[in-house]
Amino acid sequence: MMGRVLTFFDPLVRLLLVAIVAASLLPVSGQGAVIARIVSDVAIFLLFLLNGLRLPRSKVFTGLRHLRFLLPLIVFVFGVMGLVGWFVSARADGLLPASVALGFLFLGVLPSTVQSATAYTSLAGGNVANSVVAAAVLNILGVFISAPIIALVVSGGVAGLDLGTLERIGMILLLPFLLGQMLQGWLGPLVADRKRLFSLMDRFAIAIAVYVAFSGAVVQGLWTFISLGEWLVLLGLVGLMLAVGFIGAWALGGALGLLRADRISFLFAGAQKSIAMGAPLAAVLFAPEVAGLILLPVLIYHLVQLIISAPLASRFTRQG
């Protein structure tokens, strides 16, 4: 029951749906789009600054010592899922618009969620400490792994990646995170004492990035040039990646001989993908008209993973 409530009333899910509807009905274009992207960049800068401020360095160092759990998880999240995303993206080329097909590679190399993976691990009776540390380490690595993989694999003609884009990654993602880590001793307690306020700021920053990206896609004709058949293909391929993510993570955890609590943590950390990283990263890497299309597989995956995770967590609780 608690899992269902978490799924359908999660504030981030509601904000994402509002952002998509708003972009569909009132997309920004022209000079408004330029201003909106500046606002989005500022919001993303603040998001990663806050991430740097509230992530204790001690957790990162502690997580690095759980190598038997962490190393296979890193390989699965970025390596296995990245290869599956690349394979699906290649097979989808010709069946889907190029930017949507590229979205599967982008989805594959994203890190795990933080809040929902930890919440479902807790509901299922898993190892919450492992989940928290894994999510933190994976999201730090995501900044250094996801963007370079996309930059190396994707041609400049499709995504518009160049030296200027890599500079944007450094200025809007890496710089604020490092500043947050440096200022943690001074401003960290301020953020910790106002968790609700800064959590709201997080969600609105992600929603702004999604709104700007989808506005660009809507202006380009998102809801008209993707046919019903293509939508069915898109949903089917997202379903394939979900199956690989959840079944693969659970199977690998068993093959590693992890304890039940650790295996549950491995499942949710390995199978879930982070829109909190995906939306800002897409906004930084791609032009808005491309970013919205690339985010389609990520958004669908994110929403469905929550729906899948709720009954899974309930089942683990009953079996526990």
Rank of each mutant, 00 (worst) to 15 (best):
G160H: 00
V284Q: 03
A129F: 05
A134T: 10
A205N: 08
A217W: 05
L12S: 02
A205D: 04
W86H: 13
G320C: 08
I20V: 15
L166T: 07
D41W: 01
L235F: 11
M201C: 13
N130S: 15
P176T: 15
L47H: 11
I20W: 10
L235S: 03
I294T: 12
L232A: 15
L152T: 05
A249F: 07
A36F: 01
Q272H: 14
G94A: 02
G125R: 09
Q115F: 09
A135C: 09
A117S: 15
I308A: 12
F61T: 14
V158M: 14
G185L: 04
I145Q: 09
D93M: 12
A135I: 09
D262P: 11
G108A: 06
G156Q: 06
G164W: 08
L295R: 11
L258M: 08
L16R: 06
A217E: 05
I264S: 06
A43F: 06
Q31F: 13
L50T: 13
I44P: 09
L105Y: 03
V132A: 13
M2K: 13
L53T: 00
L15Y: 13
G156P: 09
F8K: 02
G278S: 09
I226C: 09
A276S: 15
A98N: 01
L312N: 08
V109Y: 07
P97L: 01
L295V: 11
L110T: 06
M171Q: 15
G85Y: 02
